[in-house]
């Protein structure tokens, strides 16, 4: 089936983006990537903790099959996000970036305003910018204006695994925004991912639900299937049209008499 997703000039077959945080062991990651079919993988930039002996995650990601998407997690404002993005690119991580500006430590909700500022700067420097945002139509429009390659509204607050609590707001974005809408954060079950895709989301980004499952590679595959099912359902013809039930005798029947 020919239904590619084009972002930043790259053509993607898979509409499941994978986050690599919170996994019990990095060694699991190649298998998870394979089972998920993901072609876009997010990573984070951190200061080395010399006591902890952390491994470079890039050792576990095959750049031939995956687009690397560093996120700007840790940034509390636009300036910090911009710095992180530039460092990641200069270090050879490619020009894709997920902007994540969070200065709320309780709910980890993104700061749309700083995100818009960072998007404008980085898009101007040739980055392929995918901003993580709180679903808000005005902010989404500003992100489009600022040069984002897609918008990534949260489905529910990060890590909550509560599914699509932001469903109605996301629906509005899908209807009104021309760019791909990628639901990020809060998708706890494959059925949530399917729901997002059925609504018309271009893709979903999943991390916690896979990383913290009993069997992460298995859950990765489940999400992959759910994303495909949701997408196929969307393409096969939304049953939403019959939100208004057909009248018992057709109102326009007279035209065919």
């Amino acid at each position: 089936m020919n239904d590619p997703l084009v972002i930043g000039g790259r053509t993607l077959e898979s509409r499941l983006f994978l986050g690599t945080g919170k996994f019990p062991a990095n060694a699991m990651i190649p298998e998870v990537i394979r089972r998920s079919g993901a072609q876009v993988v997010t990573v984070a930039l951190r200061r080395v903790d010399f006591e902890a002996q952390e491994e470079n995650i890039l050792n576990y990601i095959d750049r031939k099959n995956c687009i690397l998407m560093p996120n700007t997690s840790g940034a509390r404002n636009a300036a910090e996000a911009v710095k992180i993005a530039r460092i990641a690119r200069a270090a050879g991580c490619g020009n894709w970036v997920k902007i994540e500006v969070i200065n709320d430590n309780r709910y980890l909700l993104p700061d749309n305003y700083e995100t818009i500022k960072a998007t404008e700067i980085l898009a101007g420097e040739g980055f392929v910018v995918l901003p993580y945002m709180s679903p808000d139509l005005a902010a989404a429009r500003a992100l489009v204006e600022a040069g984002a390659a897609a918008v990534m509204p949260l489905g529910s607050p990060i890590g909550s695994n509560r599914g699509l609590k932001m469903k109605e707001m996301i629906r509005i974005l899908i209807e009104e925004i021309e760019l791909p809408v990628i639901v990020d954060a809060g998708l706890g079950r494959p059925s949530h991912a399917a729901e997002a895709m059925e609504m018309g989301a271009a893709a979903v980004l999943v991390n916690t639900a896979i990383a913290t499952a009993e069997d992460p590679p298995g859950m990765a595959e489940a999400f992959s299937l759910a994303v495909r099912a949701g997408r196929l359902s969307y393409l096969a013809g939304s049953p939403e049209v019959s939100r208004y039930a057909r009248a018992s005798s057709p109102l326009t029947g007279f035209l065919r008499d």
């Binding site: 945080g21 990095n26 951190r46 200061r47 080395v48 996120n71 460092i87």
Partner: peptide, 10 residues
Amino acid sequence: LQILVMLGGG
């Protein structure tokens, strides 16, 4: 000076 590494992240 910052010594950084790419780690897993969402």
